Computed example of a mutant assay.
Amino acid sequence: MMGSGETLQQRLEKNRQRLYDLQAKYGLEHIYVLRQSMVLDELINQYNRIYYAKLKKPIA
């Protein structure tokens, strides 16, 4: 799923920067910006699922 040892945090940051760059180039309502926003949302959701799953694990 994650290529070349790239962490989820690295993917989040890379995709966040891409969103900023696309927004600066095309504006908020362009399809490229909307698609990239959806990609970033999914990565944030993945991060939250992992983070909150770790919080719920009982300490042995």
Score class of each variant (00 low, 15 high):
M2I: 06
M2A: 13
M2K: 15
M2H: 13
G3Q: 05
G3M: 06
S4M: 07
S4L: 07
S4A: 04
G5D: 01
G5C: 01
G5V: 01
G5S: 04
E6D: 04
E6P: 00
T7S: 15
T7C: 10
T7D: 12
T7N: 15
L8K: 14
Q9V: 03
Q10P: 00
Q10R: 08
R11W: 00
R11L: 08
L12D: 02
L12R: 11
E13C: 07
E13P: 10
K14D: 00
K14A: 02
N15C: 02
N15M: 03
N15D: 04
R16T: 00
R16E: 00
R16W: 00
Q17R: 14
R18V: 01
R18A: 07
L19D: 00
L19W: 02
L19R: 03
Y20L: 14
Y20F: 11
D21E: 12
D21Q: 11
D21L: 01
L22V: 11
L22K: 14
L22N: 13
Q23G: 14
Q23L: 06
A24E: 06
A24K: 14
A24W: 01
K25L: 02
K25S: 03
K25G: 00
G27V: 11
G27M: 10
L28H: 12
L28R: 13
L28M: 09
E29D: 11
H30D: 08
H30L: 03
H30T: 03
H30W: 02
H30R: 04
I31M: 09
I31D: 08
I31L: 07
Y32W: 06
Y32P: 00
Y32L: 12
Y32V: 03
V33M: 05
V33H: 08
V33P: 05
L34K: 15
L34A: 06
L34M: 14
L34Q: 15
L34Y: 05
R35Y: 05
R35T: 08
R35S: 08
R35K: 15
R35H: 08
Q36I: 05
Q36R: 06
S37L: 09
S37W: 05
S37R: 13
M38A: 13
M38T: 13
M38W: 06
V39E: 03
L40P: 00
D41Y: 15
D41W: 15
E42P: 09
E42G: 12
L43M: 11
I44N: 02
N45G: 11
Q46P: 02
Y47W: 14
Y47L: 10
Y47Q: 09
Y47R: 14
Y47N: 10
Y47C: 09
N48M: 13
N48T: 12
N48W: 08
R49E: 13
R49V: 09
I50Y: 05
I50N: 03
I50T: 08
I50F: 05
Y51S: 06
Y52M: 05
A53C: 01
A53R: 14
K54M: 06
K54N: 08
L55D: 06
L55G: 10
L55K: 15
L55E: 10
K56W: 02
K56H: 03
K56T: 02
K57G: 00
K57I: 04
P58R: 14
I59A: 12
I59G: 05
A60M: 07
A60R: 12
A60W: 09
A60C: 04
